[in-house]
Design a protein around this nucleic acid. Structure first.
Length: 814
RNA sequence: GCCCGGAUGGUGAAAUUGGUAGACACAGGGGACUUAAAAUCCCCCGGCUAUUGCAGCUGUGCCGGUUCGAGUCCGGCUCCGGGCACCA
């Protein structure tokens, strides 16, 4: 038979459409699988990374459908975001128009790949119906104090004209546009993710073995939990006077309370209120004040790259245990955003404190024994530490915290590197934050019946300022509470908010989408996502936010689960000439052209064959051709099939080649379960099928051919669905596709077994023996076969590995 | 600097988790068919030595160890990729 991919693929895609073949059943009786590939941003065209992502997910979804699971395999569009506005600025197109026409085009591309998505559950996150429910959640979060508004120093991207969350700053630059991020003081909305830090950290244990190890450690480090002591430094009387009595004390945090007797100075951030007061009121020399202001204006990134720098503030604090006066400095390495912006400095046992003390000639006092070399940050016994001297530092830590707590001037404290999630964006193309600023009532949430707060269509997008703020009328409204004139919030939500709950939206039956955001029962049935597939670049951002949102929605009573994604597969990048495919590098391969030339099945087969999904995939045009040839060969060999069902075969009656062919076929079948359910090493399954086809080719038995094709098409259908369906229809009336195949043990029974004979650890020869033979007999035969290498040797040890090999350890005979 | 990965032929990769390293493919070489080309089919294909015949040595980034046996386990390095980057 000849292979005409374009014709076949159009035929099957139409048939699947007509049959609505991939809609899950509404019934909750059946066992289920929820297979989800991360949804795409509608940028205009699919790229190879998408093709890979969806080929993997589709193979898994199709496999489970064959195993009689009720499968939810949805797709949608992560549709809000900056590129839509950039397109508006550049080409004068309305973001809405740009977005929805991109979606239409890309939907067609996904369709052409033969992906088995549920069509009834598709949505775009910019659909007002989606925004409506998101706004409801946001209001609920505000009411339970998880969402709050405050003015803080934020990461600001001048090129995107918007605020960025901490996670969205990569190497000091904006994650999206790569421009350097500046610090700016601004009001904004925050989600209290720190409140969930402990749970987000602890629940990583649930995901162990199910998520890539790498992602778990990245999240763990990002949360950055540390336990220590928080206490207050009281200012000396003289210093209080100098500060006009406005400050009495300040708080510091340390993870090393065991080194507290080694404190020789304290350091404040440039932004610390005391530092600011001193600078602003001329209480430090004007030259120093200037330098401090300069530091305060630097980004964290810039500060991290500069040398240690600091200035004496001319004030002192009292050491809480010794009563000694300790000088206070300001230092550029003290972060305002962590632990109160102030530290106790122990130069003997902290690298930063040591470097600083050496530079400015501050005293260094050793209090932990151990290495002679300073700074020493390891374990040891306390020295020179009053009542605690002699204790091991780990014990001392707990005792000192206990002592502080008893005395009431400090307490054990847990700190996180994780910072609260700033969700305000000063953009147009996002979900409006549904609040109103009222002169009389303050910040007021919009009434439920007025949701969604929708975006105005008539905007001017110039790239200058926030288009919603500039709109002539949109922001003027009545206060939902008192009815007087008020101003609508013009910030919109971070787009990561939309992707934090989309998994629940898909799980909700679309018939209920108008009435409800997330259906609890539907979610209980479908969630969590059994297999989630996406790029490693979301290891922290999206995956942490979605985990957080799941816990929040649970606590607000919307769902009953703790973790959204049961299993996670992170796919590798698609590269060409060793570099990531990108338009700017000009090394892209257009999926449309590939499909046009070879068909979707070839694209899918190549992508799954060329490398295991987790690894990087190097594009190779020749290998694509090879994938195409394999499918063509299947069509060619279809002529060998003469029986239209799974034949009964008397294995004993077959010749050696046919027996081997059956063995290869069933080896592939045996492998398939593991591949589709656990390892996702599709490359090895495809290789096993190629081996089976090669072995079938070397024999002539019609029944063995028929059986082989019956099994192989069944195994390959999730990977090359059009070709496999077509052949299965022509040869077996598709019976093989719905069949649950059983392993035939008899094909693995060998007439004889090949034993490798190793002598002195080296492979020397082989012997073919009957399977019923004893170890003694095998050894005897091995010695006979290997006499050549045994001459002049005596055997020290004999090892027989059943079914595999014989190893004779030898040494020269004396 | 710290934390994770990884390193196997010319290339992409396999290797039942301690048991014949290089399956399966791509590229390359040779041959068959053909007027010719394409397509298809067959053979060879880690390195070195030998080649009249068998064959021998060596080989999974490097050095060492455990073991009858190590790509796989242990210790110490080198290089590459990713993440974090003064978090007290």
């Amino acid at each position: 038979m000849s292979y005409n991919p374009n014709e076949i693929e159009a035929k099957w895609q139409k048939q699947w459409d007509d049959e609505q073949a991939f809609e899950p059943s509404d019934s909750h009786e059946q066992k289920k699988k929820y297979i989800l590939s991360m949804f795409p941003f509608p940028s205009g065209r699919l790229h190879m990374g998408h093709v890979r992502n969806y080929a993997i997910g589709d193979a898994i979804a199709r496999y489970y459908r064959k195993q009689n699971y009720n499968v939810l395999h949805p797709i949608g569009w992560d549709a809000f975001g900056m590129p839509a506005e950039n397109a508006a600025i550049k080409h004068g197109r309305h973001p809405k128009d740009w977005t929805y026409s991109n979606i239409d085009y890309m939907r067609g591309e996904l369709n052409a790949l033969g992906l088995s998505f549920s069509k009834t559950r598709e949505f775009a996150t910019c659909d007002p119906l989606y925004t409506r429910w998101e706004q409801e959640f946001i209001i609920k979060m505000y009411e339970s104090k998880l969402l709050f508004r405050e003015s803080t120093t934020v990461n600001w991207c001048e090129s995107c004209h918007t605020v960025l969350a901490n996670e969205q700053v990569e190497e000091g630059c904006c994650w999206r546009c790569d421009n350097p991020v500046q610090l700016k003081e601004m009001p904004g909305y925050y989600l209290d993710i720190i409140k969930y830090a402990d749970e987000l950290l602890n629940d990583l244990k649930i995901l162990e073995g199910k998520w890539p190890h790498q992602v778990l450690t990245m999240q763990e480090n990002w949360i950055g939990k540390s336990e220590g002591l928080e206490f207050e430094f009281e200012l000396s009387e003289e210093s209080k006077a100098k500060l006009d009595g406005r400050f009495e004390k300040y708080t510091v945090f340390t993870t090393r309370p065991d080194t507290i007797y080694g404190v020789t100075y304290s350091a404040l951030a440039a932004e610390h209120p005391i530092t600011k007061y001193l600078v602003e009121n001329g209480l430090v020399e004007s030259e120093v004040a200037q330098k401090i202001t300069h530091i305060a204006n630097m980004s964290e990134r810039e500060r991290a790259q500069s040398d240690k720098e600091g200035y004496s503030l001319g004030i002192t604090v009292i050491h809480p245990l010794t009563g000694e006066e300790v000088p206070v400095w300001t230092a550029n390495f003290v972060l305002a955003s962590y632990g109160g912006g102030a530290v106790m400095a122990v130069p003997a046992h902290d690298e930063r404190d040591y470097e600083f003390a050496t530079k400015y000639d501050l005293p260094i006092k050793r209090v932990i024994s151990g290495s002679e070399k300073l700074p020493y940050t390891g374990e040891g016994e306390l020295i020179d530490s009053a009542a605690f001297t002699g204790l091991i530092n780990q014990q001392a830590k707990a005792k000192i915290i206990g002592m502080f707590e008893e005395a009431g001037f400090g307490k054990g404290k847990i700190n996180y590197k994780l910072r609260n999630w700033g969700v305000s964006r000063q953009r147009y193309w996002g979900a409006p934050i549904p609040f109103v600023h009222c002169k009389h009532c303050g910040l007021v949430p919009e009434k439920a019946e007025n949701l969604p707060v929708a975006l105005p269509d008539d905007v001017e997008i110039t790239g200058e300022g926030n288009p919603l703020d500039n709109h002539p009328t949109w922001k003027y409204c009545d206060c939902p509470k008192c009815g007087k004139a008020a101003i609508r919030e013009t910030d919109t939500l971070d787009t990561f908010v939309q992707s934090s709950w989309y998994q629940f939206r898909y799980a909700t039956n679309p018939k209920k989408w108008n009435e409800i955001g997330i259906d609890k029962e539907d979610a209980a049935y479908w969630m969590g996502v059994d297999q989630y597939i996406g790029g490693i670049e979301h290891a922290i951002l999206h995956l942490l936010y979605a985990r957080f949102f799941t816990k929040v929605l649970r606590d607000l009573g919307y769902v009953d689960i703790d973790e959204p994604f049961e299993r996670l597969l992170t796919q590798g990048m698609v590269t060409m000439d060793g570099a990531k495919m990108s338009k700017s590098k000009g090394n892209t391969v257009d999926p449309d052209k590939l499909i046009e030339k070879y068909g979707a099945d070839t694209a899918r087969l190549f992508i799954l064959f060329a490398a295991p999904p987790q690894k990087e995939l190097e594009w190779n045009d020749n290998a694509v051709e090879g994938a195409f040839k394999f499918i063509r060969r299947l069509f060619d060999r279809a002529d060998k099939v003469t029986i239209d069902h799974l034949p009964n075969i008397d294995h004993e009656m077959l010749n050696k080649e046919s027996k081997l062919a059956r063995q290869k076929v069933y080896e592939a079948l045996q492998k398939s379960g593991d591949v589709y359910e656990k390892t996702f090493a599709f490359n090895t399954l495809i290789a096993a099928c190629m081996e089976a086809l090669n072995a079938l080719d070397r024999q002539n038995d019609e029944a063995v051919w028929s059986e082989g094709m019956y099994v192989m098409l069944n195994l390959l259908e999730p990977i090359i669905p059009h070709a496999a369906s077509e052949l299965s229809e022509r040869l077996f009336k598709r019976a093989n596709l719905s069949d649950t195949l059983k392993i035939r043990k008899e094909v693995f029974v060998q007439d004889s077994i090949l034993y490798v004979v190793m002598i002195g650890g080296k492979k020397r020869t082989e012997i073919e023996v009957s399977p019923s033979i004893s170890s003694e007999e095998i050894l005897a035969l091995a010695k006979e076969a290997g006499y050549k290498w045994l001459e002049g040797m005596c055997i020290v040890k004999e090892v027989v590995v059943p079914g595999k090999l014989v190893n004779l350890a030898v040494k020269p005979a004396t």
